[in-house]
Write a protein that binds this DNA or RNA. Structure first.
Lengths: 407, 407
DNA sequence: TTAATTATTTTTAAGGTCAAAAAAAGTATT
DNA sequence: AATACTTTTTTTGACCTTAAAAATAATTAA
């Protein structure tokens, strides 16, 4: 809310069209002008004009069809000329700051992975200046791996767990920082040669789903991530919904029980306090203090091999999760919910029984229920989200330049 | 989702601007062109062009300042010419169908109330044909009161409790209809000389708040209504958010307790089953079967005079409500929440303790919390929402005609 | 009273987008 | 091989919006 650009009739209007076309090309991979017109709603005439400018700016290129390859069915009429993004146009980095380490992913403009890099953190929580220099160091190391430098990057996206106002690049609170209320964008600007973009990690997974994942052809969906905590990203009308202060979509701290279990946020009854990684282990270890459990997969194995205590922990978590999802459906009535996870060990939350319970807890109408897709990403998920955000922002900047050059 | 017009570059684009200007004039009451430019983001030049067309179409008029009245502070420069809606341009009806009766409210184009009318229903639940004829009868009676006929109306808005897809004018379910899945829009079209618009009643209260109420100057807010049940209307970017199937924002059936109290919808643990009117009475009558309570105000009086049982009922309801509101804040991070109610007897839900509990249950950041405004409407609230919707739709139609005439 | 100043509104010239027409680049038919 | 046909792309003329300039209508100062 209040955080969507609108009414910027100033110079924004020409950019908007360019960006829409660029997005259409990105989501399609390769696409002919006529289909861009179909998808975006622009007239073919306008598409011609816009693509000409994007071509001239070097952001896209025409695909010269191989003579043999008439695979797309022999069509009559003037043959289509497909367009695609020009990968070499830009190079961006995506960073995910985790508990113990930073992952860096470098993508080209097309979204192709160039390389990835991991670096161990000196400390879990750092003061702002140290944090900045660690970030830069991680990027520098990654670039070195690919024989280029940080100066060859057009943008850097950073995924943080915590409460982030992405627009203002302001961090209210993050588990990686000892400081609160840090104007991290400004801090990082002074250390890097290229623009840095920040957001909450779950929002960025949603961004990755929108650009590269299950949400590629959908403009309205919700992404729920489960791991240590529970995160959510909301995409409405093709944009991340962030709320007034930039800290909406805190699904994990939605209350599912009055005076319920204690959450790491200090409050009680948060969904995360029933479903999150640490919540499950806490329960397990309360139940059986003599055999402390190291991790959730172990607990899950026990449940599957018939341990009733373990099973009841997952059972309750699943039911709470179903309730949370049902609430999302009741509020948003979305077309699609994506359950995104890095590891498959959390199968229990994707179980048919959970989804069935969700369906039962939803307002019943004679219309198809929202689709729920489970997307098991590799371990790059979070960093890829950050990189996706960087690509999006770099695209906007590039289009801005292309538009003003055209004038 | 998927239910916001976009990409209608066809003829929509000229309408959009006209409509935006019209909305700005409506929300301001009277406003000079230069301020319309400021508010809408259009250039003064465009405002001149658009207002000229709206003037010619008779939708707005210039305010001739009284010679004496230089009240607005002595300004230098060319004096502003204020514009306002021309009330006589259109006349619309808003209908709210309740348990036992229908209220009809007739407004002029400016939103001024011309008259209101109440009619008793023959039955609470009716088959579709009877329902339609009762609706028409109510409108006809109301018009007769004002010495005009239904033919003098430019549109009729209808507020229904239940699950309504406003875009399709389709009713999945309503407490007023015996049938399910009724294409009520089409049914009503065949009985009326003017267009009929339908929506869920809570959505329409949100519409009324946006056009005439506390949301007049806000484009992103949430309205929660409490009465028999609990309703919600979400305004994002100036538009009612309705979800994919048109049945989002079902706040009342959000689950706040696993395996909780039985709700009238047949499910368990719905917020409404703790906070709704009928839920409170149910509890009270379970507790004390010998003295059945007639209504909630009586129960509330008992609580205030120290009856511990009554007090505990309100206490739990309040805490559940606070939890529900906190969840909304955690998900939407809205700028404003409006608690809209017809009667003040529900003070207990607006109590400071409830709001305080909500504030405690929200993700804590060093930024101002969403504002919560309590708006106690008169008994026209629901019908006014329906009328507001009719005004909005009629405006769109009028602008469409003005635009095509201008061409 | 006249000129200067100020603020609002309107006009003008330029660029963006679209519908319709034209051009382009193929396949199908004779 | 020539012509007809089909589909995509580009061009054209018209309209919408804007920035900048001009016109308008007041107040203020001289």
């Amino acid at each position: 809310m209040a955080q969507t650009d609108k009414n910027n009739h100033n110079s924004d209007q020409r950019e908007a069209g360019r960006l829409q076309v660029l997005d259409a090309i990105r989501s399609a991979g390769t696409i002919a002008r006529i289909d861009i017109a179909g998808r975006t709603g622009f007239s073919p005439a306008t598409v011609t004009v816009i693509t000409a400018q994007l071509l001239e700016a070097g952001l896209i290129e025409e695909v010269t069809p191989e003579p043999n390859e008439k695979a797309t069915g022999i069509r009559r009429g003037r043959p289509r000329v497909s367009l695609r993004l020009r990968g070499q146009a830009h190079r961006v980095a995506g960073l995910k700051v985790s508990h113990n380490n930073i992952s860096v992913l470098i993508l080209d403009f097309e979204g192709t992975e160039i390389l990835s890099h991991e670096m161990t953190l000196p400390e879990t929580r750092m003061a702002t200046p140290l944090f900045c220099s660690v970030l830069i160091e991680a990027v520098t190391q990654a670039c070195a791996k690919g024989s280029f430098t940080i100066n060859d990057l057009s943008g850097i996206g950073v995924a943080l767990s915590g409460l982030v106002d992405a627009k203002r690049r302001f961090v209210y609170w993050s588990s990686s920082l000892t400081d609160r209320n840090v104007n991290l964008g400004a801090e990082l600007d002074s250390c890097t040669p290229c623009p840095v973009f920040l957001d909450n990690d779950a929002n960025l997974v949603a961004k990755a789903e929108h650009l590269f994942g299950e949400g590629r052809d959908v403009d309205d969906f919700i992404v729920v991530t489960i791991e240590h905590g529970v995160g959510m990203g909301i995409v409405l009308d093709g944009e991340i919904y962030r709320g007034t202060r930039g800290c909406g979509a805190e699904f994990g701290h939605t209350k599912v029980q009055l005076e319920g279990a204690l959450c790491q946020c200090g409050q009680r009854g948060c969904l995360e306090a029933y479903v999150g990684n640490y919540a499950l282990l806490r329960e397990a270890n309360i139940m059986d203090r003599d055999r402390p459990l190291p991790d959730v997969p172990t607990l899950f194995n026990r449940a599957q091999s018939g341990d009733m205590m373990a099973r009841s922990i997952f059972d309750r978590a699943g039911r709470m999760f179903a309730m949370g999802l049902a609430n999302l459906v009741n509020i948003f009535d979305p077309k699609l919910i994506i359950l995104a996870g890095e590891r498959l060990s959390f199968d229990y939350l994707h179980a048919d029984t959970v989804l069935e319970e969700m369906r039962r807890s939803v307002v019943q109408v004679d219309a198809p229920l929202p689709e729920v897709r489970v997307h098991a990403w590799g371990d790059h998920m979070w960093a890829k989200g950050a990189a996706a955000y960087a690509i999006e922002q770099v695209s906007a900047q590039a289009v801005r330049e292309a538009s003003s050059d055209a004038a």
